[in-house]
Design a protein around this nucleic acid. Structure first.
Length: 491
RNA sequence: GGCGCUAUCGUCUAGGGGUUAGGACGUGAGAUUCUCAAUCUUAAAACACGGGUUCGAUUCCCGUUAGCGCUACCA
C-alpha cells in the first residue's frame, strides 16, 4: 500500500545530506544541485545536513571541503549546516518511541557472533539476514538483561509478511517483500544511531516534504518507510536520482580521474558550466527548441531553476562525459565578458609563476578566449606574452615550406626592417606585412609563419597582428633577431 | 546468490503503436582563414535479444541477457 501525503502541497523543504567521509564528489554535487534547483523552483527551503555519525570515517576537513564545493558551485543553503553528531538526543528519543510502540527490540548479539553467523550462512548458501533471535526474547528477560548493564543494539521489528512500498516521483511504485528486509539496527550498542534511524529522525524533525537523493538509496527506502509508519508519521515524497557512471559504466569513482568537485575548479571549469552540464545529466527540460528547431542545452542558472521539475528526471544511469563538459565550459568561457574572463584566468598565471599585469591580461584575453576550453588552458596558450625569454623551439619551424631556409631568412629580415618603423597597431601591422608579402612574392600563409614562430615561439598561436600589438615593438624585434640568429646557426 | 532498478547513435538524450527515429557532445569530410581555434555546411552513427498483444511494434506485456544498486552495530 502507498501512503499519499500532503507533502506535495506544502511549501517544499528539501535537503542535501552528505557524509563527510570524502570531498564533495560529482554524484553528490548533482544530488545537491537537484535539491537546490527544486527548492529554488518551488520557492522552498534548501537545508544542508552533515551526516557524521560514522565518527571513524568523518572528519572536519571533509566537512570544510564539502562546504567549499557547495559554495563554489553556488549552491547556497537556507538552513544549516546541521550536524548529526550534535543531535544524538533526537535519535535516542526517536528510537525510544519506536521501541515503545512495539516496533523495535534490544538485540544482545555481539558483532563477532553476527559476523560468524553471516559467514556460516554464506557458506551454507543461505541469505545472510539477521535471524531475529533476540526478537523472541521475552520482554521481561530483555529488560532484566538491560538493567544488568548488558550491551544491546536496538533493532527494528520488520513485519514477517506482507510488503512495503512507496511511490517514487521518478521510478513510480516500488515494492519490497517484508520477508526480504532484515531487522535492521536503529541504535548501535554504544548508543550511536545508524543511518537508517538518523535520516528518518532528521527528515521528520526538519519537516522535509521531499527526499531527493541517489538511486543507491532505493533499497534503503522501505526500511525508512517502515519507521515512518511505526512513528505514525506521513511520508515525504521520495525522488531517487539515477547514478553517475564513469566511461566504463561502473559507478564514478576516483579511478576514473577527477571526482572531487574542487578538482574541476582547479582545471578551470566555471561553476555555471558545471551546473549546466550536471543538470542535464539525468534530467531534461521538456521540449525546448531553439530558433532552428534544435533542442537547447545551454541554460543559465535562472533558466535552470525556472525549468526544473522532478518529472524531467530520467530513470537510467548516465555516463559522465568529460568532452561534453569541456564543450559546455568553452561555451561559458566565450560568453563571459572580457574583463571578467581576464580576472578568472589571472590566478592560473600567478600559479604558473608568470607576471601578468591586469592591463596586459585584459588585452590578451580577447585573443585567447576562443582558444581555451578550460580556464587553465589560458596559460599554455598565452604564456609567450608574459615571458622575457621564449621557451626553446625548433628552428625548423621558422621555415615555411619545403626546407626553404633562405626564404625564411628573407622574410624575417624584410619584416624586421619594416617593423622597426611601422606604427605598432594591428591594422598598420597587417597592412605593412601584407604588402611585404606581395613585395616578396610570397603568399600570406608562408609569409606569416616565420614571423609567428619568431614572435610567439610556436606554430599555432593567436592571431598574429593582434598578438604583435600586445607584445609591442621592442619585444617583437628582439624575438625576430633571435630567430634570425637561430636560422643562421641552422646553416 | 537473493532482492530491486534500468535498457534509443560511442556518450547525454527527444520521441512514442503507423516517424526519413529528432537534437547535442565527440568523430569524418568540406567551406572560411595568417596558423590554431571559433564559425558554417555536411557525413557516418541507435531503438539489446526472444516471445506475445495488435492490421501494425522501437513504443504495451512477459521472458532472456546485460549493466547498475542494495544485501553491515557504513552512509
Amino acid at each position: 500500500m502507498t501512503d499519499q501525503t500532503p507533502s506535495q502541497t506544502r511549501t517544499p523543504r528539501v535537503r542535501f545530506a552528505p557524509s563527510p567521509t570524502g570531498y564533495l564528489h560529482v554524484g553528490g554535487a548533482r544530488t545537491a544541485l537537484f535539491n537546490w534547483l527544486f527548492a529554488r523552483h518551488t520557492g522552498g527551503t534548501f537545508i544542508l545536513r552533515i551526516e557524521d555519525t560514522d565518527f571513524e570515517r568523518s572528519s572536519e576537513a571533509m566537512v570544510e571541503g564539502i562546504l567549499e564545493g557547495m559554495r563554489w558551485l553556488g549552491l547556497d543553503w537556507d538552513e544549516g549546516p546541521f550536524f548529526q553528531s550534535q543531535r544524538m538526543e533526537l535519535y535516542k528519543e526517536t528510537a525510544a518511541k519506536i521501541v515503545a510502540g512495539g516496533h523495535a527490540y534490544p538485540c544482545f548479539c555481539t558483532r563477532e557472533a553476527l559476523e560468524q553467523r553471516r559467514k556460516e550462512a554464506a557458506e551454507a548458501g543461505r541469505p545472510p539476514m539477521y535471524d531475529r533471535r533476540c526478537r523472541r526474547i521475552p520482554k521481561e528477560e530483555a529488560e532484566a538483561r538491560l538493567a544488568a548493564g548488558e550491551a544491546a543494539a536496538i533493532r527494528f521489528a520488520v513485519p514477517e509478511s506482507g510488503a512495503t512500498s512507496f511511490d517514487d516521483a521518478v521510478f513510480g511504485t516500488v515494492e519490497f517483500a517484508n520477508a526480504e528486509i532484515e531487522d535492521f539496527v536503529l541504535l548501535r550498542s554504544d548508543g550511536v544511531p545508524t543511518y537508517h534511524l538518523s535520516v528518518v529522525a532528521d527528515d521528520l524533525e526538519m519537516r522535509l516534504t521531499h527526499v531527493i537523493r541517489g538511486a543507491d538509496h532505493i533499497s534503503n527506502t522501505p526500511k525508512q518507510v517502515l519507521q515512518y509508519r511505526a512513528l505514525g508519521a506521513e511520508l515525504p515524497v521520495f525522488a531517487h536520482v539515477p547514478l553517475i557512471l564513469g566511461p566504463d559504466k561502473t559507478r564514478l569513482s576516483k579511478r576514473h580521474g577527477a571526482t572531487s568537485v574542487m578538482a574541476y575548479q582547479e582545471m578551470g571549469i566555471v561553476p555555471e558550466a558545471f551546473r549546466n552540464f550536471l543538470a542535464l545529466l539525468g534530467w531534461t527540460p521538456g521540449g525546448l527548441k531553439d530558433a532552428n528547431g534544435k533542442d537547447r542545452e545551454l541554460f543559465g542558472s535562472d533558466e535552470l531553476t525556472k525549468l526544473f521539475t522532478l518529472d524531467g528526471i530520467s530513470k537510467s544511469n548516465a555516463v559522465f562525459d568529460n568532452d561534453k563538459l569541456a564543450w559546455f565550459n568553452a561555451e561559458y568561457i566565450r560568453a563571459l565578458p572580457v574583463d571578467e574572463l581576464s580576472r578568472c584566468i589571472a590566478p592560473y598565471f600567478a600559479e604558473a609563476g608568470l607576471q601578468a599585469s591586469p592591463e596586459k591580461l585584459l588585452a590578451v584575453t580577447p585573443l585567447i578566449r576562443e582558444r581555451i576550453q578550460y580556464l587553465r588552458d589560458a596559460v599554455s596558450v598565452a604564456d609567450f606574452f608574459f615571458v622575457d625569454e621564449l621557451a626553446p623551439y625548433d628552428a625548423a619551424d621558422l621555415i615555411p615550406q619545403k626546407g626553404d631556409a633562405a626564404l625564411a631568412r628573407r622574410i624575417l629580415a624584410h619584416a624586421r626592417e619594416l617593423l622597426a618603423t611601422t606604427a605598432f597597431d594591428r591594422a598598420s601591422l597587417e597592412q605593412a606585412l601584407r604588402e611585404a608579402a606581395v613585395a616578396l612574392g610570397v603568399k600570406t600563409g608562408p609569409m606569416f609563419q616565420p614571423i609567428r614562430v619568431a614572435v610567439c615561439g610556436r606554430k599555432n598561436a593567436p592571431p598574429l597582428f593582434e598578438s604583435m600589438e600586445v607584445l609591442g615593438r621592442e619585444t617583437c624585434l628582439k624575438r625576430m633577431e633571435q630567430a634570425e640568429a637561430k636560422l643562421a646557426e641552422l646553416g
